[in-house]
Design a protein around this nucleic acid. Structure first.
Length: 955
RNA sequence: AGGCGGGUAGCUCAGCGGUAGAGCGUCGGCCUUACAAGCCGAUGGUCGCAGGUUCGAAUCCCGUCCCGCCUACCA
């Protein structure tokens, strides 16, 4: 694959690269691997993805910031879907003539990256502390240089049309300058402050976390009851899920109105394990007298509610844990124990003192770190915070005023709810890898110097020169919140910033609506004065076929590259459930993906196009996308269909001269096909505009497989296929068919291109195209309704022809007529216009039904031949002579079935028309439609009665 | 506890006021010279349950039961 540096020749100089289309015809089957790398390199060489900053480029822009993947990441199914959706948007807008910037980059991912490199060090028997900060950071950069580019290569394999030359890393020096600027400005505006309070502490990563990075999960636990002896006699029993925190208790609280405890409020309890005593207090907010024993131990240093209670009552705050989650010196003899060992030890000690009063099973919510999954500890700590309320208000208003639209709309409420209840954001992290907080402390005075400079010359308070920079770095999300503008060189007023801010769409997963999207909204409005995007598009998450989230534990993870390039089940499940026995892993996998049970040894190489088309075909309205490997296989078949349709058509198109205009068409199939094309192109455009790729792909699928392949190409055969004796075809007629076929194929491939970039380029390059087309289909025009020609009359007429064909085929099939053998067909209608139609199109009916000689078209008034099977298609009688292969009983049964069905329809319609108020209240056209429908059904019923008589004649 | 989704054909999902659709699967028949990764045909649903609004409800409203996700929580 071509690398960044060599890829951006620029759109201005496209002539140099050779056309990579191989000589010769198409292979019999579609082979994705062969074409993908070839065309990606071609696109890069021709600068197809390049967004222009040229002053004379007046095209409107389309800007789509990529949700930056972690530099540690590798492509998973979620990325694959996200990238697919985004690339569809980018390619479609580029093809609609917009100056398109799909803006890529990677995130430095503070914790994740630091953990990766620390693990690497651990294998060498080293720690980052032994290395020191500077050397450690050097190691991280070194690692990034070697391994950090993997996900970008995988994105390229997916065909992303991002402007790679503009790729940004969130630790790039210019980006870092933007981050620092944002911090300083917010600090100067009083929107960033430092405070000491209870925060969420990750004991494993040893850093604070923001409340968003804490996941609360319900788990089974224990409600443990023990007694505190009361000074002067008696005891009070408290219930707790965390016995070890009693080492930090500074009160016992009861409800002021609880009669059980009226006498003890104000007395002290004696700590049974430490040399301390503390009061029994009354607190109506903390205590629910109905829960537990009605008495609550209060640990202000390690519980959020207790902390508030402590403030209300002026209680001492005794922290008993250190940064690693071990009991500190305040824990007496328990000092040094890990928090979980301490729990056991405390319980044992209480038991020894005969203070245990009970224990029961209890469901409780455990806060766990989003990153390390370790239990998060509330700890008292000094950290940096963003005052979010003033930032949230305009961000909420922008959405409420419609300046930014959220799709699907129901997320608007969630967004609003969060903005209205937003909490201050803790942005400092006790890590080394990240944007270091530009705050400097003075040893001589209390002043904190916050500065844009690399290092301030002197303390802003006392002028002392001995300054220490804050050891901490910023939350990674702080820097990514600036993505839409720091990307373009902000705070400088760059040309790129002027042209590409605000962005058009922000497409991402709803799971980072708060983490990222909401924060970009706040920062964008605050620093640039306008919201960073016109629309926010939120896609679902990918889950397995049973609806479970993909996870290593469940063994249901699928690597998108395996679907693209192929993999055996052995390989797939080894990746999905590493280390497990292969049978077990396979069993789990097939349970998660029932449809894969019939997939033989594994995944074939379905190719990028099939994967993309499949992902796009799920509705973005749902919250989950249940990935089905079988569906991808199905769409690989669709790719093959497109491939073969083109392979079939190409020989007929040699020498065809194309123009941009929609070809004139006189014959019905051509008029009809152009009408279908117009409808399909409209649906594709609407689907793309409305973020409904499922509708766009469904329209394309139906059009290509149904209209084009099943009908039109079959109808081509008697006209264009010399072998089939197309002797009565005039040169002009033949030319019309060729022009329509070439035009429709071209437009179809263009319509498909945003969804399946590779195969469409490969085939489009082989088609006869009008003069002056761009070097790539990626720069050609996305078809719209104007690429076809609406023609309701042709659609109605074709519908009658198609109905007649299907009806005749049904009889053939049900009578077990061998598909190879030919039958005699007669079509009868009392409508002269219909007879004219059928007569005019009968050669198509003849090939599609496989008739024995010419189709007879007749008036229904005439004598009907004997020994035929009859059915109805619209108003047309369809009669098939069946030379003795007919079983009269079977025939009667079939007709009976149809009569029953029709009678049911007649019943429904009669009831509807008879019901009171229908004729008066319903719209006139609905009533008229129902009436004509009923008349048709009754006519049909009459005919079926006749058909039944005919069946009797068969004996 | 609150918020948001979802419950439609065997499976996965569209449809969201005018007599139920797709893909896959199933059944039957075909190697018909673009495609067996294919072609032709067929089968299959009281649209979670119970009310209401309406001439008419899968579609709107109320209630109810399941299933997800999110937010916030009683030690």
């Amino acid at each position: 694959m071509t690398t960044d540096s060599s890829s951006e020749a620029g759109a201005a100089a496209p002539a140099a690269a050779a056309d990579p289309t191989p000589e010769g015809g198409l292979s019999k089957g579609f082979e994705p691997a062969e074409i993908e790398a070839r065309w990606y390199a071609y696109w890069l060489e021709h600068g197809v993805f390049h967004a222009s900053e040229a002053a004379d480029d007046t095209r409107p822009t389309y800007v789509l910031p990529m949700p930056l993947p972690n530099v540690t990441g590798s492509l998973h199914m979620g990325h694959a879907m996200m990238c697919t959706f985004e690339d569809i948007l980018a390619r479609a807008h580029r093809m609609m003539g917009r100056n398109t910037l799909y803006a890529p980059g990677t995130d430095h991912a503070g914790i994740a990256t630091q953990v990766v490199v620390e693990r690497q060090l651990a294998r060498e028997g080293k720690t980052r502390h032994e290395l020191g900060r500077a050397a450690f950071l050097e190691r991280v950069w070194q690692w990034k240089g070697q391994a950090g580019g993997r996900i970008v290569e995988q994105q390229k394999a997916l065909g992303l049309s991002a402007d790679w030359a503009r790729s940004k890393f969130t630790m790039d020096p210019d980006y870092a300058r933007g981050v620092r600027e944002a911090f300083v400005r917010l600090y100067e505006e009083g929107l960033i402050y430092r405070d000491t309070r209870l925060i969420h502490w990750d004991c494993q990563a040893q850093t604070v976390l923001s409340n968003l990075e804490v996941n609360n999960e319900e788990e089974n636990g224990e409600l443990f009851e023990f007694a505190y002896p009361i000074e002067g006699g008696g005891e009070i029993v408290v219930a707790t899920t965390r016995p070890e925190t009693m080492l930090g208790d500074t009160a016992v609280a009861v409800h002021p109105d609880d009669p059980r405890y009226q006498g003890v409020v104000g007395k002290n309890v004696i700590h049974p394990l430490l040399d301390r005593k503390f009061p029994i207090i009354a607190d109506a907010i903390l205590v629910d007298p109905k829960f537990g024993t009605g008495a609550v131990k209060v640990t202000p240093a390690h519980d959020f509610n207790d902390h508030e209670t402590g403030k209300r009552h002026g209680l001492p705050v005794i922290a008993i844990l250190d940064k690693a989650g071990r009991v500190n010196e305040h824990g007496g003899s328990f000092a040094g124990l890990d928090r979980f060992e301490a729990r056991k030890a405390v319980k044992r000690a209480l038991k020894d003192k005969e203070l245990v009063r009970g224990s029961k099973q209890h469901k409780l919510v455990i806060p766990r770190s989003d990153r390390t999954e370790t239990v998060v500890e509330p700890m008292l700590s000094t950290q940096w915070f963003v005052r979010t309320k003033p930032l949230a208000e305009p961000a909420l208003a922008a959405v409420e005023k419609g300046e930014t639209l959220i799709l699907p709309e129901e997320w608007t409420k969630t967004y609003a709810h969060w903005m209205q209840n937003i909490l201050d954001w803790c942005i400092s992290r006790q890590l080394w890898w990240g944007h270091r907080i530009p705050a400097f402390y003075c040893d001589k005075c209390e002043h904190v110097t916050v500065t844009r400079d690399e290092r301030p010359a002197a303390c802003g308070g006392c002028g002392a020169t001995e300054l220490r920079q804050d050891e901490d770095v910023l939350d990674t999300w702080f820097s990514s919140a600036l993505w839409p503008f720091a990307y373009h060189g902000w705070p400088d007023d760059t040309a790129a910033l002027r042209r590409f801010y605000p962005a058009s769409d922000l497409e991402t997963g709803y799971d980072i609506l708060f983490f990222w999207v909401a924060r970009m909204m706040m920062m964008g409005i605050h620093f640039l004065g306008k919201p960073p995007f016109a629309r926010i598009l939120l896609h679902p998450i990918v889950v397995d076929e049973t609806g479970d989230k993909m996870s290593k534990v469940k063994g249901n993870v699928i690597d998108p590259l395996d679907l693209m390039h192929g993999a055996s089940f052995d390989d797939v499940v080894r990746k999905a459930l590493p280390g497990a026995p292969i049978e077990e892993a396979l069993a789990k996998f097939k349970k998660a993906y029932p449809s894969s049970a019939s997939m033989g040894k594994g995944f074939d190489a379905y190719g990028t196009d099939a994967l993309r088309f499949t992902l796009a075909s799920y509705s973005a309205l749902s919250k989950r996308i249940p990935l089905s490997p079988k569906k991808i296989e199905g769409n690989r078949h669709f790719c093959n269909k497109i491939w073969n349709a083109t392979r079939f058509a190409l020989p007929y198109l040699e020498g065809v001269v194309r123009t941009d205009a929609v070809p004139e068409a006189k014959s019905l199939p051509n008029r009809w096909l152009l009408a279908r094309l117009a409808a399909t192109a409209s649906a594709v455009r609407a689907g793309i505009d409305g973020f409904r790729f499922d509708e766009a792909t469904a329209a394309l699928y139906r059009f290509v497989w149904g209209d084009l392949c099943d009908w039109y190409l079959e109808m081509c055969k008697p006209v264009l296929g010399a072998a089939l004796g197309a002797t009565d075809v005039s040169a002009a007629e033949r030319a019309e068919w060729q022009r329509v076929l070439a035009h429709v194929l071209d437009a179809t491939l263009r319509g498909l291109h945003p969804f399946m970039p590779f195969i469409t380029e490969e085939l489009w390059q082989r088609l006869p195209r009008p003069a002056g087309v761009p070097v790539s289909i990626a720069l050609a025009k996305l078809p719209g309704p104007e690429d076809g020609r609406a023609d309701p009359e042709a659609e109605r007429a074709m519908d009658i022809v198609q109905a007649a064909v299907v009806a005749a085929r049904t009889i053939r099939s049900e009578r077990d007529v061998h598909p190879g053998s030919k039958v005699h067909l007669e079509l009868r209608s009392s409508d002269p216009a219909v007879r004219a139609l059928l007569l005019g199109e009968r050669r198509f009916v003849e090939t599609l039904v496989r008739t024995d000689g010419a189709v007879v078209v007749a008036d229904r008034a005439g004598e009907r031949p004997r020994g035929v099977a009859m059915t109805m298609a619209r108003e047309v009688e369809v009669l098939l002579t069946l030379r003795g292969v007919v079983d009269a009983d079977k025939e009667r049964a079939r007709i009976e079935r149809e009569i029953k069905r029709t009678e049911k329809d007649v019943g429904v319609l009669e009831k509807k028309l008879a019901s009171k108020g229908f004729a008066e209240r319903a719209p006139a056209e609905v009533v008229a439609e129902a009436k004509s429908e009923l008349a048709a059904m009754q006519a049909r019923l009459a005919l079926l009665a006749e058909a039944k008589k005919l069946a009797d004649e068969l004996e």
